[in-house]
Amino acid sequence: MTQFTYDGLPGRVVFGAGAARTQLLTELDLLGARRVLLIATDAENGTATQLCAPFADRVVATFSEVRPHVPAEVAELARKIALDADADVVLSVGGGSTTGTAKIVALTTGLPVLAVPTTYAGSEVTPVWGLTERGRKTTGTDRRVLPKTVVYDPELTLTLPVELSVASGLNAVAHCVEAFWAPRRSPVSSAVAEDGIRHLVNGLTTIASTPTGLASRGELLLGAYLAGSAFAVAGSGLHHKICHVLGGAFDLPHAHTHAIVLPYVLAYNAPNAGEAVGRISRALGRVDIVDGLRELGGAVGVPAGLRELGMDESGVDDVIDDILAIAPADNPTRVTAEGLRAILHGAWAGSHPVGPTA
């Protein structure tokens, strides 16, 4: 008999086109929320303000100084605003950085989070938080940061540019891929991950031809939800360890970094992860899963290498030790300094991914 532990996470999910326009007030009432701290970037502020119109009198403060990887000074400012406003709920409208900022507020204040994602980050259904200080990104897990409610509305992603949509979608694919070999993997999380890849691929292969099609956007958003759910219970693997260190050290864009690095980690692990490769291949509909993932991004202009994001090649050696210190002991292929250097140099240059050397 197969034996496993599956630690299901609590949370309410409302999914559907137009749900953000019609359901937010009801969801706030269910949380008993009367004093809302709204977190949204300047770019998302117009959308967020429209969504809040039915309960504008409850919005007691707005925080818009969101930054990628949640710098410590941003976190401190957001916490102060929440406390000064005597908020009783945090409403985040935006992508992963916005959700991440709301989580950091929740971590120290205990306030519930209602998340309305506008990208395919998936962090809205995980208890993982991240904070960057002096170029080092620290992550942790705490159920206090897990949003109480998530409202998924494909309409809110219609204006997300195709290239960024694909990068964000590939980030979600990375969540699924790692769920197959993450520390707390189980048959349940693997099944969710495989179905997540299937929905994400459906969206990724049609988004370029139908960028404003709700069907494609809905597939991507559903896939992102499943991806985040699988990642939340299975845990973090080598790919995410690498990307978190790179993001904190060089302030690289989150989704693009994950999209670029994923094929290289997959090529490194594939020789020792046969079952995972088979399931990923089945979900992708491709025999060569490494080339398949690279083609999904390359077709719409996702950068091939980290150097196109502004990272210097010298940075590769700067982060090897930091990644080694947190690399999973049970990674399918043993993690070595030489192996990491090969992954990072390949990802920096955008060269064809190759497997580990003997």
Score class of each variant (00 low, 15 high):
Y120A: 00
Y120H: 06
Y120I: 03
Y120W: 10
A121F: 02
A121R: 02
A121D: 08
G122I: 11
G122D: 14
G122W: 07
G122V: 09
G122N: 09
G122E: 14
S123W: 09
E124M: 01
E124G: 01
E124W: 00
E124K: 03
V125S: 08
V125G: 09
V125I: 15
T126D: 11
T126S: 12
T126G: 13
T126N: 04
T126E: 15
P127A: 03
P127L: 04
V128D: 09
V128L: 14
V128Q: 06
V128F: 13
W129L: 09
W129E: 10
W129V: 13
W129A: 11
G130S: 12
G130C: 10
G130T: 12
G130K: 12
L131P: 12
T132K: 08
T132W: 03
T132R: 05
T132M: 06
T132C: 11
E133C: 12
E133V: 13
E133Q: 14
E133Y: 11
E133M: 11
E133I: 12
R134S: 12
R134K: 08
R134I: 03
G135Q: 11
G135V: 14
R136E: 15
R136M: 13
R136N: 09
K137I: 07
K137D: 04
K137P: 07
K137N: 03
T138M: 10
T138H: 12
T139N: 02
T139W: 14
T139A: 03
T139G: 00
G140I: 15
G140T: 11
G140A: 09
G140H: 09
T141Q: 15
R143P: 11
R144K: 14
V145G: 02
V145F: 01
L146P: 14
L146K: 06
L146Q: 09
P147V: 04
P147L: 00
P147R: 00
P147S: 04
P147I: 02
P147T: 00
K148N: 13
K148T: 13
K148A: 15
T149W: 11
T149Y: 10
T149C: 07
T149F: 10
T149L: 05
T149K: 09
V150A: 08
V150S: 15
V151F: 01
V151D: 04
Y152M: 05
Y152D: 01
Y152I: 01
Y152G: 05
D153V: 10
D153S: 06
P154A: 07
P154G: 07
P154C: 12
E155R: 03
E155T: 00
E155G: 03
E155A: 04
L156F: 11
L156D: 05
L156C: 03
T157I: 07
T157W: 13
T157N: 09
L158V: 15
L158E: 09
L158I: 10
L158G: 08
L158D: 08
L158C: 12
L158A: 14
T159V: 01
T159I: 01
T159K: 00
L160C: 01
L160A: 01
L160G: 02
L160E: 04
P161E: 13
P161W: 12
P161L: 11
V162G: 11
V162N: 08
E163A: 15
L164V: 09
L164F: 03
L164K: 04
L164G: 05
S165W: 05
S165L: 05
S165T: 12
V166M: 06
V166Q: 06
V166D: 12
V166S: 10
A167F: 04
S168W: 02
S168G: 05
S168T: 06
S168P: 04
G169S: 06
